[in-house]
Amino acid sequence: TFYNFIMGFQNDNTPFGILAEHVSEDKAFPRLEERHQVIRAYVMSNYTDHQLIETTNRAISLYMANL
């Protein structure tokens, strides 16, 4: 899942690491979701930090390219 992918960046001092920290603390994050459209919609609806949203979009693109 995307959640498992992004958790691989925990403790990294990178934008993906920052995203992983936010996702791990977000109890409502769709952890079992595999459809990138649902993940993107969730982030757009629940996150207000523009940098975090952009990082999510980049992470989703990388995740999709590696499926």
Score class of each variant (00 low, 15 high):
Ala59Cys: 04
Phe29Ala: 03
Ser24Pro: 04
Leu32Ala: 11
Thr55Tyr: 10
Gly8Glu: 09
Thr48His: 11
Glu25Cys: 12
Glu34His: 15
Phe16Pro: 01
Ala65Trp: 10
Phe2Thr: 01
Ser61Arg: 13
Leu19Gln: 03
Thr56Lys: 02
Pro15Ile: 07
Tyr47Asn: 01
Asp49Thr: 06
Glu54Pro: 02
Asp12Pro: 07
Met7Asp: 00
Phe9Gly: 00
Thr48Asn: 11
Phe29Ser: 13
Ala28Leu: 13
Asp26Leu: 05
Glu21Met: 15
Phe5Arg: 00
Ile39Phe: 05
Asp49Pro: 04
Val38His: 07
Ala20Trp: 08
Asn13Ala: 10
Ile39Tyr: 01
Gln10Ala: 12
Thr14Asp: 06
Glu33Ala: 08
Leu62Phe: 06
Ile53Asn: 03
Ser24Cys: 09
Phe2Pro: 00
Glu34Asp: 13
Asn46Phe: 08
His36Lys: 04
Tyr42Val: 05
Ser61Leu: 14
Asn46Tyr: 08
Asn11Thr: 07
Pro30Leu: 05
Glu33Cys: 06
Arg31Ser: 05
Ile53Cys: 06
His36Thr: 15
His36Pro: 15
Thr14Ile: 03
Phe2Trp: 04
Phe2Ser: 03
Glu54Cys: 07
Gln51Leu: 14
Phe16Leu: 10
Ala20Tyr: 06
Ile53Lys: 07
Met44Asp: 08
Thr1Val: 05
Tyr42Glu: 03
Gln10Leu: 15
His22Leu: 11
His22Met: 09
Tyr42His: 04
Gln10His: 12
Leu67Asn: 11
Ile18Asn: 08
Gly8Ser: 14
Asn4Val: 08
Ser61Asp: 15
Asp12Thr: 14
His36Asn: 06
Ile18Glu: 10
Ala28Arg: 10
Met64Arg: 09
Tyr3His: 03
Ala41His: 11
Met7Val: 06
Glu21Arg: 15
Arg31Val: 07
Ala65Cys: 11
Pro30Gln: 02
Ile60Cys: 04
Met64Ala: 10
Leu62Pro: 00
Ala41Lys: 09
Ile53Ala: 05
Arg35Thr: 06
Glu34Tyr: 15
Lys27Leu: 11
Leu19Thr: 00
Ile6Cys: 02
Leu32Gln: 12
Met64Asn: 07
Thr56Val: 14
Leu19Asn: 03
Arg35Met: 06
Met7Pro: 00
Tyr3Gln: 00
Pro15Cys: 10
Arg31Glu: 03
Tyr47Pro: 02
Val23Leu: 10
Thr56Cys: 14
Gly8Phe: 08
Gln37Ile: 08
Glu33Phe: 04
Val23Pro: 11
Lys27Asn: 10
Tyr3Ile: 04
Tyr47Val: 04
Leu52Lys: 02
Arg58Lys: 12
Thr48Ser: 11
Met64Cys: 12
Gln51Met: 13
Leu67Met: 12
Lys27Glu: 12
Arg40Leu: 15
Leu32Cys: 13
Val43Met: 10
Glu25Pro: 01
Ala28Trp: 12
Arg40Gly: 05
Leu19Met: 04
Phe29Glu: 03
Asp49His: 05
Pro15Ser: 10
Leu32Trp: 13
Pro15Thr: 07
Asn57Cys: 12
Thr48Tyr: 08
Tyr63Gly: 00
Val23Thr: 02
Arg58Met: 11
Ser61Met: 14
Asn4Glu: 14
Pro30Phe: 14
Leu19Pro: 02
His36Val: 15
Ala20Gln: 04
Asp26Ser: 04
Lys27Asp: 10
Ala20Phe: 06
Ile39Gln: 00
His36Met: 14
Tyr3Leu: 02
Thr55Asn: 04
Val38Gly: 04
Asp12His: 12
Phe9Val: 02
Phe9Pro: 01
Gly8Trp: 08
His36Phe: 13
Leu52Pro: 01
Glu33Thr: 06
Glu21Trp: 14
Asn11Tyr: 12
Asn46Cys: 07
Ile6Asp: 00
Glu54Ala: 09
Thr14Leu: 02
Ile53Pro: 01
Arg58Asn: 09
Glu54Tyr: 07
Ser45Gly: 09
Leu19Ile: 04
Leu19Glu: 02
Ile53Trp: 09
Ile39Lys: 01
Thr1Tyr: 06
Phe5Tyr: 07
Glu54Thr: 08
Lys27Pro: 14
Leu67His: 11
Met7Tyr: 03
Asn4Cys: 13
Glu21Ala: 15
Thr1Leu: 07
His36Asp: 07
Asp12Phe: 11
Glu21Val: 13
Gly8Val: 08
Arg35Leu: 06
Asn46Lys: 08
Gly8His: 12
Ser61Pro: 05
Arg35His: 09
Phe29Met: 04
Val38Cys: 12
Phe9Trp: 06
Gly17Glu: 03
Ile53Arg: 10
Leu19Arg: 00
Asn66Val: 13
Phe5Ala: 00
Ser45Ile: 09
His50Met: 13
Asp49Ala: 06
Thr48Pro: 07
Tyr47Leu: 03
Ile18Ala: 12
Asp26Gln: 07
Tyr63Asn: 01
Leu52Gly: 00
His50Cys: 11
Thr55Ile: 14
Gln37Phe: 10
Asn66Met: 15
Thr55Trp: 08
Tyr47Ser: 01
Leu67Ala: 11
Ile60Gln: 01
Ala59Met: 09
Ile18Met: 11
Arg58Glu: 08
Phe2Glu: 00
Phe2Leu: 05
Arg40Ser: 08
Pro30His: 03
Asn57Pro: 02
Asn13Ile: 06
Gln37Asp: 14
Asn11Glu: 06
Asn11Cys: 10
Tyr63Ser: 02
Thr56Met: 15
Asp12Leu: 11
Tyr47Ile: 04
Tyr3Pro: 00
Ala59Lys: 03
Phe9His: 05
Ser45Thr: 12
Arg58Trp: 09
Ile18Gly: 05
Lys27Thr: 11
Ala20Ser: 05
His22Ser: 06
Tyr42Trp: 05
His22Gly: 02
Ile6Leu: 14
Gly17Ala: 10
Val38Asp: 05
Leu52Arg: 01
Glu54Lys: 08
Thr14Phe: 04
Ile60Arg: 00
Arg31Trp: 06
Leu19Gly: 02
Asn57Val: 11
Ser24Thr: 09
Lys27Val: 11
Leu62Val: 10
Phe16Met: 10
Pro30Arg: 02
Gly8Lys: 13
Pro30Asn: 02
Gln10Lys: 15
Pro30Asp: 03
His50Glu: 14
Ile39Met: 01
His22Ala: 11
Arg31Gly: 03
Thr55Val: 10
Tyr63Gln: 04
Thr1Gln: 03
Phe5Asp: 00
Asp12Val: 07
Arg40Pro: 01
Gln10Asn: 08
Tyr47Met: 04
Tyr47Thr: 04
Asp12Ala: 09
Ala20Leu: 04
Asp12Lys: 12
Ile60Asp: 00
Gln51Val: 13
His50Asp: 11
Ile39Ser: 00
Pro30Lys: 02
Val23Asp: 05
Gln10Asp: 05
Met7Cys: 05
His36Glu: 12
Ser61Tyr: 11
Ile60Tyr: 05
Gln37Leu: 09
Asn11Pro: 04
Ser45Asp: 13
Thr56Ser: 09
Val43Phe: 07
Thr56Glu: 04
Thr14Ser: 14
Arg58Cys: 11
Pro15Trp: 09
Asn13Arg: 09
Pro15Phe: 07
Val38Phe: 09
Gln51Trp: 14
Tyr42Asp: 04
Ala41Gln: 13
Ile53Gly: 03
Tyr63Arg: 01
Phe16Gly: 01
Leu32Gly: 12
Tyr42Ile: 03
Asp49Asn: 08
His22Arg: 11
Leu67Thr: 11
Leu62Asn: 04
Arg35Pro: 04
Ala41Ser: 10
Ala65Gln: 12
